[in-house]
Amino acid sequence: MAHELGDFLRARRTDAALSPESGVARRRIRGLRREEVATAAGISVDYYTRLEQGRETHPSDAVLDALARTLRLAPDAREHLFRLRGTAMSRPAPSPDDTLVERMAALVDAVRPNPAYVLDRLSTMVAVNPEGLALYAGFAALPPGERNTCRYLLTDPRAREVFVEWEELARGAVAQLRAANADDLHDPSLEALVAELGARSPLFAEWWSDHLVERRRASATHIRTAADGTVARRYEVLRIPDEELRMTLWLPPPSSTDGRRCATPSCAGPPSSMSQF
């Protein structure tokens, strides 16, 4: 995975958020120069250059720790960096058997009327209850294998109408897709999805090339509904690691003191930087 390791380092190094803020003359490049990263990490410029170019493939833990600190990697991105050093075995596309699908269907049915669905590592629904399906306009008419939440957020204009924090959710979907597939970024099913979304969505192509990495966790967001207007909703993400699945469970809308549904961020709690999809 040397190529992915170098691409990841290059993408994180050129992140605009890393640009020096003071004491440095204004410059045209984004992020940090190779020399700046190497100096801050305590390694030679030549060694770091070889890492980015894929000519050095087995950096030590100490080197990766130093690079993670220099590039200000969040925990998920740091873990991703370490995994990119290894050699992953190719694995087949996810194909849950009937028993697993039945188990997941029973799980999402048990939490009704709360919306819930189970997603595989490509963000395709393995199981969903009616309330969860209703969150995605048009999903009910699609074959189950085509109900992909990442594709929906990046290519369906209705997503921008339903989800108030659409950009955060869409970026989060891209970050989750990379995090869930870090062990094999050349899996044919993943490559096909990435090629499709890259062709259909310039934003997906941009965010995928930025090597965003973050797994979905519990947070809050706002949904526009015909019945209630804008409603604040919290959700929890439960992982089933052995099956490479995750379940998203939407909690009941909070209520204000006068009994009406609350649609303010203070009722829902702090939103995350990215979403659950």
Rank of each mutant, 00 (worst) to 15 (best):
P130M: 07
V126A: 04
A180N: 13
A268S: 13
Y48W: 08
P241V: 09
S123G: 03
R85Y: 00
R200V: 12
L177V: 02
G229I: 01
L107W: 13
S201I: 11
H222Y: 03
R34H: 06
T99Q: 15
A74E: 14
S123C: 15
E36P: 04
P157D: 08
A141H: 06
D109Y: 10
R13D: 09
Q176K: 14
A17D: 14
L153R: 03
Q176H: 11
M247R: 08
L9A: 08
I43P: 04
E168V: 12
A159C: 06
L197K: 08
V111C: 12
E167S: 13
P144Y: 10
P253R: 10
Y48T: 08
A25W: 07
D156N: 15
R78Q: 08
S189I: 03
R83N: 06
L107K: 10
M125F: 06
S266V: 10
P130I: 05
A74F: 02
R55A: 08
P94Y: 01
V101A: 09
H211S: 09
M247K: 06
Y117F: 15
T149K: 04
T230R: 15
A68E: 02
C262P: 01
F82W: 10
L67E: 00
P92G: 07
R85F: 00
L84R: 12
E146H: 15
R215V: 00
D228F: 13
V237L: 09
S60C: 08
H211K: 14
A66D: 05
